[in-house]
Design a protein around this nucleic acid. Sequence first.
RNA 1: GUGAAUGUAGCUCAGUUGGUUAGAGCACCAGAUUGUGGCUCUGGGGGUCGCGGGUUCGAAUCCCGUCAUUCACCCCA
Length: 419
Amino acid sequence: MLTTAPRGTRDILPEEAAQWQYVESNIRQCCLLYGYGEIRPPLFEHTELFLRSVGETTDIVEKEMYTFRDRGGRNITLRPEATASTVRAYLEHNLYAGPQPVKMYYLGPMFRYDRPQAGRYRQFSQFGIEAIGTQDPTMDAEVISVALDFYCRLGLTGLEVQLNSIGCPKCRQDYRQALLNYLSQHRGQLCRTCLSRLDRNPLRVLDCKEEGCQAITADAPRMLTYLCSECDEHFKAVQECLQSIEAHYVINPALVRGLDYYTKTVFEIVWPGLGAQAAICGGGRYDGLIEECGGPSTPAVGFAMGLDRVLLAIQKAGAAVPAAKTPLAYVVALSAADNQEAFRILTRLRRADIISDKDYRQTSLRAQLKAADRSRARYAVLVGGIERTQGMVAVRNMTTGEQHEIPLDQLITFLQEGR
RNA sequence: GUGAAUGUAGCUCAGUUGGUUAGAGCACCAGAUUGUGGCUCUGGGGGUCGCGGGUUCGAAUCCCGUCAUUCACCCCA
């Protein structure tokens, strides 16, 4: 226990962290380009916020939340997603009073008590964006476009955008009733979990993978034919926007999504190489959520993207990640008596912004050079011997093996010119 | 939450029907080379066989529990 991270958590060690930093820097560039400002909400919130926003009957709320009472007796939950926090912050800081829409992004860990497997963790990282304050279909298209541009920057290809509209509360209610009537007639052929879905959330029967259920839902009424004129027009406009920017998508009428707050546009982006956990990004419009949380009626749209899965995908796809920066110089002490002088020179190099290192083991010249080689430093700087008495160091080019003495006071200039 | 598979050195894996001191390759450290890395050779360190219990004269091997990982279901990111 003492030497094992809790189930579903893991350490990201320096080698992998470099890949994360690369991905994160692309996120920040992308958001800058599209005009999204960063929001850093707390990692935990009042439990009530998630109950209200995510929905009481969702899997997240029913079985996946890390909930506890703090020492002051407050009911607290580690955030399972960040849209709720973003909306809360929008209201808490009266952002609706400023220019609309408010476009924000977030980046960081989320927590869900779920059974871990490849691409699924109890602490996982999401990048998400939210555009609050407009129902313009170009906003929906922009949100999808941000995700696609981001994948493009990473060199990730072979993604599929699945798109659907689940309407507004008005037309969805009509559809829900029609679907319920239809499914009730075929009650006997539904699987056990779908039977329980019937009263709670019949739309979810649509994406059941059981063969029997699929046979029935194949002929079920379609949401898209029940959309009211406003929702229908909006959905068509979103599609036209996507087509106009050559963003490819497929319509998946079975796409429902597991959170209660979605309205109109919903989408998922899938990278098939990830197997069972192939959904790499999911999002949609949530025109009712802000009001539900006690604010003015305000439309909004956003997505959340699983970065652990993005990392898995670029690793599996072999997408290029820039090579880690290696030291320019590796300082070597010829004898133990030169160790302190080597350290002094090393410090001067670092103060001159030269990436550099040394061996800290007080070991043989041979071992130090081996370490220099392994650090993939461009030069080894050898300190000691007669050179030291002459105010010189030996600089060895680790690629060519060439070596020559240069005066200590010219070392920094030499290294700066050499890079 | 349900079902299944797996767990031996830092990594990848051997380990016979239960039988003496549990092995290999790679990696690591040192020497060959007393002021010079990569290649080669030689040597060395490193294991509570995931953990706990049971069966047995004897368990890495068989049984039970537990923890972890992976896969499927569920769900999503």
